[in-house]
């Protein structure tokens, strides 16, 4: 009786291990299939945005849609599509938003060049400021300069 109990427990444990093994194997299977392809899928999906959790890449996200899209990318690459073709496939469905690196076009000019414009503006402002500081003393008329010199020359107590 006791022996059969132990056997039963051992069997249950073994079954549990086997179950876990199956689950792990299921999860890891695609990597085992073709490590080169898997690496390719990884690098490509790192450039694509997950639309459900918007600040994650498709590579990072575990959202069901991200997993579907990763499978889709794997499928297309396995069928000989180029990176650009896969990216175009994604953009055709989800728009530029799916790209982590937005393309340079008219609607994104401000995004790409705005910071440089701001920097240029800052430099221009700085230059202008420095220049006006340079010429500040020149703004005084000779009469005013004379008056300032007089004031400085006069001892404070005898002033006025």
């Amino acid at each position: 009786m006791r022996r059969s109990l132990i056997a039963c427990a051992a069997f249950a444990f073994a079954a549990f291990l086997a179950g876990a093994g199956v689950a792990l194997a299921d999860e890891a299977r695609p990597v085992g299939d073709d490590p080169v392809l898997e690496k390719h899928v990884q690098t490509l999906t790192e450039q694509l945005r997950c639309l459900v959790c918007q600040n994650m890449t498709i590579a990072d996200s575990h959202a069901p849609l991200a997993i579907d899209l990763k499978n889709q990318v794997r499928d297309k690459l396995a069928h000989g599509m180029s990176d650009q073709e896969v990216v175009d496939y994604m953009v055709a469905r989800y728009g530029d938003f799916v790209l982590y690196r937005p393309p340079v076009k008219r609607s994104t000019w401000l995004l790409w060049f705005g910071p440089f414009l701001l920097m240029l503006g800052g430099f221009a402002f700085l230059l202008w400021k420095l220049k006006s500081r340079d010429t500040q003393t020149d703004n005084a008329t000779p009469a005013e300069l004379q008056r300032a010199a007089d004031l400085l020359a006069t001892p404070p107590d005898t002033k006025e």
Partner: peptide
Amino acid sequence: NEGKVGIDFGVYA
């Protein structure tokens, strides 16, 4: 049930 047509329509939510 595979969501493939959904992907073609750009469905995400």
